[in-house]
């Protein structure tokens, strides 16, 4: 399974990962629209999908599926925006912005890892 692994002890909460993520997916620098969320603290909090698949079973339209690399993918054309996946996510990593038609989540693309100055995030295969 391919997953974005976090190392909070290395994180300096610079939020570069959030910028990279939201810029890639939503073309704007907005942490509210990032699949990874960094919160201040010692060490900082790092919240991102661990591909546990709990949401897949809850999705009524089967818009959420697992790809060949073990990554949970959202098919937006099937999504009816009910947000049941958001409620069942055990790590609060299925993300939503009110008014947006579909939730969003980390698909382990790795763009954030290239922007992290401290190697606090890494794509791994488990």
């Amino acid at each position: 399974m391919k997953v974005l692994k976090t190392y909070p002890e290395k994180c300096i909460a610079c939020h570069s990962c959030e910028s990279a993520c939201s810029n890639l997916y939503f073309k704007e620098d907005n942490a509210a629209k990032s699949c990874i969320l960094i919160s201040e603290g010692t060490p900082p909090g790092m919240n991102v999908c661990n591909q546990c698949q709990t949401c897949v079973a809850a999705c009524p339209t089967q818009a959420l599926t697992v790809n060949s690399q073990g990554v949970v993918m959202l098919n937006k054309s099937l999504c009816i925006g009910c947000l049941m996946c958001v409620a069942v996510c055990p790590t609060d990593s299925m993300r939503t912005v009110q008014g947006m038609h579909s939730p969003f989540k980390c698909i382990a693309c790795g763009v954030c890892t290239k922007n992290c100055p401290t190697d606090a995030i890494k794509i791994v295969t488990e």
């Binding site: 925006g81 069942v88 009110q98």
Partner: peptide, 24 residues
């Protein structure tokens, strides 16, 4: 053609927020 806004609500954010609260 079903989507989250097919019912054309006047205030989708409040509808989603209230639904999500109950889902949780």
């Amino acid at each position: 053609g079903l989507k989250v806004d097919t019912n054309n609500p006047v205030d989708l954010p409040t509808l989603q927020k209230t639904g999500l609260k109950l889902h949780k």
